[in-house]
Amino acid sequence: MPEVKLTAETRTEFGKGAARRIRRADKVPAVLYGHGAEPVHITLPGHETLLALRVANALLSIDIDGKSQLALPKQVQRDPIKGLIEHVDLLLVRRGEKVTVDIPLHVEGEAGPDTLVVVENSTISIEAEATHLPQQIVVSIEGLQAGSQILAKDLDLPEGSVLGVEPDQLIVNITNAPTQAEPETADEEAGAEAPADAEAEGSSEES
Rank of each mutant, 00 (worst) to 15 (best):
P158K: 07
E188F: 15
Q180S: 11
D63R: 02
I141H: 01
T179W: 00
D79V: 10
L91N: 05
R23Q: 03
F14L: 05
E120Q: 14
H41E: 09
P45N: 13
D197F: 07
A37Y: 11
A181T: 12
E142M: 06
A152Q: 07
Q135M: 05
L155Y: 09
K82Q: 15
P183I: 02
I85T: 10
H87S: 12
H41L: 14
L32G: 11
V55D: 03
S148Q: 05
V117A: 08
F14Q: 11
Q135D: 12
V55Q: 07
L105C: 03
E189Q: 11
L116Q: 14
E48T: 03
R78W: 09
K27T: 05
A194C: 00
T131L: 11
T43V: 14
A198V: 08
E86G: 13
R78H: 14
T175Y: 00
E166N: 12
V4M: 04
T131G: 01
E13Q: 08
A58N: 00
D187K: 13
L72F: 07
V55C: 02
G96M: 12
Q149A: 13
S204R: 15
I124W: 06
E97D: 05
R95F: 13
G109E: 09
V118S: 10
L59V: 04
D63N: 12
R20T: 06
N176C: 02
I64S: 00
S122N: 15
A128K: 12
T12I: 10
P2N: 10
N57L: 06
L72H: 06
K67Y: 03
L170T: 00
T179F: 00
A128P: 12
V28H: 04
L105F: 04
A52T: 09
S204P: 00
Q75W: 12
T131C: 04
P183D: 06
L70V: 04
A146C: 09
E189K: 13
E13W: 01
E9M: 08
Q149T: 11
T100M: 10
E166C: 03
V119K: 14
T49I: 03
V76L: 04
G164F: 10
H41G: 07
H132T: 14
I85G: 09
E205L: 13
L60G: 05
T43Q: 12
I171A: 04
E13F: 01
Q180V: 13
H132Q: 15
L53I: 08
Y33D: 09
L51G: 02
I137F: 06
Q149S: 06
A152T: 10
R21W: 05
E166A: 15
H35T: 10
K5E: 11
V118T: 11
E108V: 15
I64D: 01
S161E: 04
A177C: 01
K27H: 11
G112N: 07
V107A: 09
V101S: 03
I126V: 15
V4C: 05
A186E: 10
I126T: 12
I103C: 07
E205F: 08
G202H: 01
L133V: 04
L155W: 08
I137V: 11
D89G: 12
L151A: 13
T185S: 04
L6D: 02
K82N: 14
N173M: 02
L59P: 01
V40M: 15
V138N: 11
G96E: 08
G17S: 13
R21L: 14
